[in-house]
Design a protein around this nucleic acid. Structure first.
Lengths: 193, 193
DNA sequence: GTCTATAACGGGATAGAC
DNA sequence: GTCTATCCCGTTATAGAC
């Protein structure tokens, strides 16, 4: 059974995905979580605290579904694993949509809220490194800086595609196709060195 | 001399770039524009009216500086023009930062506000077409669908890089470098067909 | 730990003078 | 058209009981 804190953070992810960070009302969050507003302040101190913990929660959850692998599934080639990992973030699944929406909100909120910047920058760095490592498994001889640049481009592109998807201008299948294309183009670039 | 309305909208663009849509306070806007709050409500009815008119103002302005070309400047090669046009959006210039920040705000607001989606989708489409046309001038033999996909990737990447830049995780020079890299990689992809 | 109040405040919006 | 003054509501945050 999830703890109270977790229960509130799950609700926060839902409310943020539904209303955005801008639209998050502590009272609505309380209702969604089935607790009182007072309890929320007891656990998270203030509005910013809610946001920060939600970001952390979302990251952990993404980590989980990104890393999770069915033990009986056939092993993936490095390239397949790279594609699989990136495409995980572009799915109609409710949990994925929530995570993407919340991530986008936090990103755009951070533009005007210094308190979130540091956490966000750190989380982004971790993500870029993961992707760079996956690229490195496809192209073991490529220099680290080249891998990092490609990883920064692919992750930034994924964020851009996510925003277009969520803001209704781009069907998720088209977004996936574009991302696959970018992976192909980047890998071809690494081939040439 | 700019009209009072224009003066207020210019101030609104500055304030939104500084505080975001959610952080926009009518009182602060009034101070920034050097007018009273009452006058703002007189001209724009309410907060939403301010936002709508400001977003329109920003689009018109971006149109202007993207299209403007010094008549005495040396003519650019197709590839230079492509790079130039895309890199215009990644500069420390105050007006550019304002527009990028406001655009990002618009994009992320649209995720939760259906009223903005249509305008945004239309503006995005126009932009993608422009970039596809520029790509076509570099590679006249490339098929239209290929050009469109590359243009969608480059513009989505630019939006993603902008967000990272504005949220403090990515220096603008690094963002420019990454974008240039993406252009190179995409053009190489068009070479191979 | 959790709830029910309610305090405290910020900020949108309006009235009315000039 | 423009300003000053102010009302009033929504929201965050806290106090105190259980």
């Amino acid at each position: 059974m999830a703890s109270r804190s977790t229960q509130i953070l799950e609700a926060a992810a839902r409310v943020i995905a539904r209303r955005g960070v801008r639209g998050l009302r502590v009272e609505e969050l309380a209702a969604e979580a089935g607790v009182s507003t007072g309890l929320i302040y007891y656990h998270f101190k203030d509005r910013t605290g809610i946001l920060r913990h939600t970001l952390e929660f979302i990251n952990d959850r993404a980590e989980r579904y990104t890393t999770a692998r069915d033990p009986d599934a056939p092993p993936l080639s490095p390239r397949e694993e790279l594609e699989h990992t990136l495409l995980l973030e572009l799915q109609e699944k409710e949990e994925v949509r929530e995570n993407s929406a919340a991530w986008g909100e936090l990103r755009s909120t951070a533009v005007f809220d210094a308190a979130l910047r540091e956490d966000l920058a750190r989380a982004t760095l971790v993500w870029v490194r993961e992707v760079a490592a996956l690229l490195g498994r496809v192209h073991p001889r490529a220099p680290a800086v080249t891998l990092t640049s490609a990883a920064e481009r692919l992750t930034a592109l994924l964020e851009g595609l996510s925003m277009r998807w969520l803001s209704g201008g781009l069907p998720v299948d088209r977004a996936r196709e574009l991302l696959k294309g970018a992976i192909a183009v980047e890998l071809a670039g690494l081939d040439r060195g």
